[in-house]
Nucleic acid binder design. Structure first.
Lengths: 191, 191, 191, 191
DNA sequence: CATGAATGAGTTTTCATTCAT
DNA sequence: GATGAATGAAAACTCATTCAT
């Protein structure tokens, strides 16, 4: 892993935990054991690093969520189930405090900065459209009521997950996310 | 309105828009046209103001959402519909950027500070339990499938709303929240 | 006791403990349970209060040390002994931390402000000259070696007491002052 | 000299003159012609600097007073005389206003802060014990009355010097310190 | 590439003082 | 006389960024 990538990875962890604005360059320097010069060699500014972090994050999610889960050869129902499992698994007991890395940034940065906002928006759009595609597939396979609006339902599912993570973070209790996942599974016949 | 309340109200607006940490005392001073000394005459610290803001916010929501909507004499179905209407109305086109005042703070502060976290948690708990009570009432009146778990469903509803607001904020599009509300109405026979 | 005197007395205690500069008007207002308006009714400024405090202090010492001890009808030897006793008694175990009220101000303010400096200087001069007079009397009564220089010895005695209090304050141990007093008594045949 | 040491040295001078609390970071910044950032690059806080200043001060005194004078090969009488000379020389006419750097801090900080207090206390203890050792040596060499208590006398000598400096500072007159030194020399047969 | 010294604008906070009531 | 709201200068401290080495 290149030094630059190493810095991004470390910064991602800190930003996930403290938020972008509350994370100082020094926090990153200390955690990465590097000097100022090296940081500014790789990044032109804190903002530049922030963007790199979102890109790295979105790319990771793209790989794990979109490519490995949604674009796998599994059938739609299984894909949706895996997506829920993966989401739940991302928030283990110890990390339940941190919340969703993208969701946090969505809230912190959306009004603050267009570039951040759009990058995050694109990820959510991809996620929603993959969920919608899977739902459509389920409808086609007669596993789901054909009168539902798949796109809208996909938005609702992603909203529920993000809202569930928000509540989980606030209550410091992973149970609430599991509950939300259960409800989704029941409502969309994923069991 | 007392000067202190005036400062809180102004600060609430700014914090809703920029977040607690990104809001500087100077932002508030300028918006309220007061001097530093006056601010510290009413509040011992920025943190003290932050707490006052959350309390004010939670109290307002308690009045508007819990007391005026849930504890009104309307029947359960109507109450839930009103709650959804009220939520949607809170995010007009112009304010769609800001997101949920409590939700934003939940994400920004939950890991950072216990006092903030607990105050917000208590509000969410109240909200969820009122939704659960309304759902129970609907079940009793045979308006809803009796096999559903009302508490869990209430959590899912609140999660969906908060998640919907999060997506709306990120997409800068109020439509997504309206969509989520529709789905809730359909799923819980509120139409 | 007038309100003004009450404020002075309270301020004296706080200044003795924290020093003049480190004492804030608020400290005094809180301790005296009065408002800003009342304070500025009696004093034109913090400096004005400071001066009043030194004057009050010096006047008290003048009464207790100069008038009641040195200008009593006792014989010189007894007067000097009483002076030492009184000094020691002023620094009980609990107050050994505070040091000498005048000495502290002498160090804190002498370079800072001429008015303070001169007021304190006058007190020390009075003290020294009274000690000198007592020593002279002892010499005349053949209780002391006639070759000593009474004025210089008086300076040395006051220096020893003030230095002893300084060390006592720093060591937080009243013993050291008692030791110094003993030495003085032996050196000047006061036992 | 390193920049850090340079800042300490400059700060020592200012603190000697104004006291720790009355010295502002800006005072130091201006005197040293550096920016805030640089200051906080070397010190974590004003307190941190304060501690560094006391340590630097105590170390200097340790070198000049303890090592170079008391631990020299001279005989006891000469050592004590040198100590008095050195003390007097430290307070030239121009600097007579400032008083004793350690003594000032002893009075300003002893009640305020334990760490300062203890560092200063240790210096005074060292000084006292060296004086005591020298007196003991003089007693052994029959230059001094064997019935005196050397430790107590050492305390008295240091007290006299510190008290003399206090009076000198307050009277703005170096003469008084010279007088005190004379008295010490006579009392302990140092002439 | 890398270090960390240096800059300076901005942040939170304190506090003596004034002023309207 | 008395209250405490209001002012504003200055304090301690933070932090992104630049620059000499």
């Amino acid at each position: 892993m290149s030094k630059k990538q190493e810095i991004i990875t470390i910064a991602r962890g800190i930003i996930h935990s403290k938020g972008y604005q509350a994370t100082s360059i020094s926090d990153i320097l200390n955690a990465a054991s590097i000097g100022k010069g090296q940081f500014y060699h790789y990044f032109t500014s804190k903002y530049d690093l922030g963007l790199a972090v979102v890109e790295d994050l979105v790319q990771d999610l793209d790989q794990q969520l979109i490519k490995e889960i949604f674009q796998s050869k599994e059938e739609a129902k299984k894909r949706l189930n895996k997506m829920l499992d993966w989401n739940l698994a991302s928030h283990t007991e110890t990390k339940s405090k941190l919340g969703c890395a993208v969701g946090n940034l969505a809230i912190e940065m959306s009004e603050h900065d267009e570039t951040f906002r759009v990058k995050i928006k694109e990820f959510f759009n991809k996620w929603i459209s993959e969920v919608a595609a899977s739902l459509t597939e389920m409808v086609e396979e007669n596993q789901l009521d054909p009168t539902i609006n798949c796109t809208k339902s996909a938005q609702a599912i992603v909203a529920m997950i993000e809202g569930g993570i928000l509540l989980m973070k606030n209550q410091q209790d992973i149970e609430i996310l599991a509950t939300v996942m259960d409800i989704i599974r029941k409502q969309y016949h994923l069991i």
